[in-house]
Write a protein that binds this DNA or RNA. Structure first.
Lengths: 128, 128
DNA sequence: ACATTTCTACGAATTCCTTCGTATAGTCAT
DNA sequence: ATGACTATACGAAGGAATTCGTAGAAATGT
């Protein structure tokens, strides 16, 4: 029954640091987040997140080291799926169209998307 | 300072009903949401949402009528933008790629996306 | 007129999120 | 060993979200 809860805003901010920097101590995370929060706030958050299973921690040394439990990609997917369900009637495609309209993408990114679509097309053709 | 806050889960559920049904009374909303919540819960939520400016209400009759303050589309865009900022480094395109991977889209939807991309291509060409 | 139903308003309980202060213990240099 | 520093743990405060009960006004039915 792991009722998978989505990370909160503060949790996501911490996860971003962990994904970018890899396993980190509380101090490293706090410092990267630039004095926005007190050290103990980051500590508490990480403790809570460990309790929720969002991060794992290595306690073998006195200074514990935290790392994200799930990959950035997996988490992103979960978040996208969640948003699609909550606001787009479950349709990722409609989410995609709004996303394309909401923010301009660079030509490189558009090319990447085209590539993906072409791949899909290839698969469907091949399946016949 | 309209610090635009994103609607919560419960609020979004109500907005979905309002978007689908158009202006509705508390009872109509509550009924559509299928006994999941007590009548007064829906009422309270709508009152709070009115305070936040998420819905407008017509009090001219005894039974008030609520309607969504912003369109479904505008809200979806806001949510997508918000998610892109929080979890995709602000890149809507990366969000799109995850969205495409996360849920299967129907051929019709894929066609729609291709169409949009083609449109963009046309615009860029035309701008030279 | 009186009882029933249907509203809105409001208060209150619960839970979660976020924040930080304080307590306590380990480490390290002098 | 004493003092300065750094670490974790814990408690607690404040705010937001969610839930629903109860009170009282307005409408409706008999």
């Amino acid at each position: 029954m792991t009722a998978r809860r989505r990370p909160t805003d503060a949790e996501l901010a911490i996860l971003r640091v962990l994904w970018a920097q890899g396993p980190s101590t509380v101090r490293e995370v706090a410092e990267e987040m630039g004095r926005a929060n007190a050290y103990t706030t980051v500590l508490k958050l990480l403790q809570i997140m460990a309790g929720k299973g969002l991060v794992r921690r290595d306690e073998s040394a006195r200074t514990h080291v935290y790392r994200a439990a799930r990959s950035e990609r997996a988490t992103q997917r979960q978040l996208v799926r969640d948003l699609a369900d909550r606001a787009f009637g479950g349709s990722a495609a409609r989410l995609v169209l709004q996303a394309l309209a909401a923010k301009k993408a660079s030509p490189e990114e558009l090319a990447e998307i085209r590539e993906w679509l072409a791949e899909q097309e290839g698969k469907r053709e091949g399946a016949r």
